[in-house]
Write a protein that binds this DNA or RNA. Sequence first.
DNA 1: TAATGTGAAGCCTTTCACAGCA
DNA 2: TGCTGTGAAAGGCTTCACATTA
Lengths: 217, 217
Amino acid sequence: MKYHKIPDEAIRRLPFYFRGLLTLSEQGRKNISSRDLADLLGFSHWQIRKDLSYFGSFGTPGRGYDIEKLIRQIRRILKLNVVRKAALVGVGNLGLAVLRYPGFRAYGFEIAAAFDNDPAKIGRKIGDITVEDVSRFRALKQRGIDFGIITVPCAAAQQTFDALAGAGVKGILSFSPCQKTGSEKVKVITIDIAMDLVRLPYYTPANRKRPKSGEQY
Amino acid sequence: MKYHKIPDEAIRRLPFYFRGLLTLSEQGRKNISSRDLADLLGFSHWQIRKDLSYFGSFGTPGRGYDIEKLIRQIRRILKLNVVRKAALVGVGNLGLAVLRYPGFRAYGFEIAAAFDNDPAKIGRKIGDITVEDVSRFRALKQRGIDFGIITVPCAAAQQTFDALAGAGVKGILSFSPCQKTGSEKVKVITIDIAMDLVRLPYYTPANRKRPKSGEQY
DNA sequence: TAATGTGAAGCCTTTCACAGCA
DNA sequence: TGCTGTGAAAGGCTTCACATTA
């Protein structure tokens, strides 16, 4: 393995491999070839091998990959070998949905705290965790929380971002498209549901019916 | 403008330009240069010009872009000049969050129907729309609904996908990571919240403490 | 034989530099 | 002069082909 700049795209795919391998492991399967894994997940086999090769040689020629071993390796690569804690800010519909989303734990992630600024919500229990006032942000570091999830309305997004960054989190997953300025030190991944939906029509074929003249398109 | 294959990445950026322009328009601004728009949105000015150039020449040298005109052009390119209707399937936490998410409408999108298979949910009103039984899928076409949004649990994802595709939708936004096999005719965009969160730790700097020799990484 | 790991080719996207227009 | 539109260069990612290894 020579030096390579590792493509972000490869990092984006690793969690998919990881999840597939976890499922196989649960089914009691011991090993798998890159081709079989690729077919299972909808990737190409050389893509999987190339992605893994950026980090080392984990397989056995002629036999494929040992599933448990590969799981451990990917967990290490993604730095998920320690339980990672995140704080969620904004316990609205979206926040609730994220809090109740299963499957963070399987990847070694724990949403360990939830914050809101609405007195009506503070103190409410959701599963294991109790909604806290945003003023308690400062203690995040001491509580071992390194990641933030922003699910507040647009207007509060920048403010929340600044507060989280100020509290020293290392990464933020934001569902708010409104925050603009970031910090160099904090990795931010943004998801905007509306933006994703909005580019669907572009990919749809033109109407099959004869387009009337005058019809926009 | 010569022939170019249009990068998917350009399509992914257009909604961002679009939203920025809408905001500027609301503020009463009439025109803007690619550089100013770029600074505002965090892109590079040549990126914006290049992306637009795939579709035509919309600006005026020396003066920049007429905001209203550019909004109309992008709306046309993204095929948003007609109100696009979508049906949401799965009225759980996430489904509710999406239904209540504001800002689809600004982009010319309308979530026009919601479906669930839970009798307890069917008939419930959320905003303007009433939750329907999934057996009513067949009528989607007649109701002018061309897009689907999947917010069902993993186990039901493939089934829901097949049903939507069978009902003739042209595109699907899926929040379920579990569906595997797609259809050639339907464009699918998938979002997996957990996967996005899970790759954050990778980007965090290594612990500040000196790495002991022998420590991986 | 069966499957990995990887250099190199090919393709796609971004960035650059500048001709040309208002 | 200021800014657009775009060919060309540079860069990054994917795909391929195959040497290599168990």
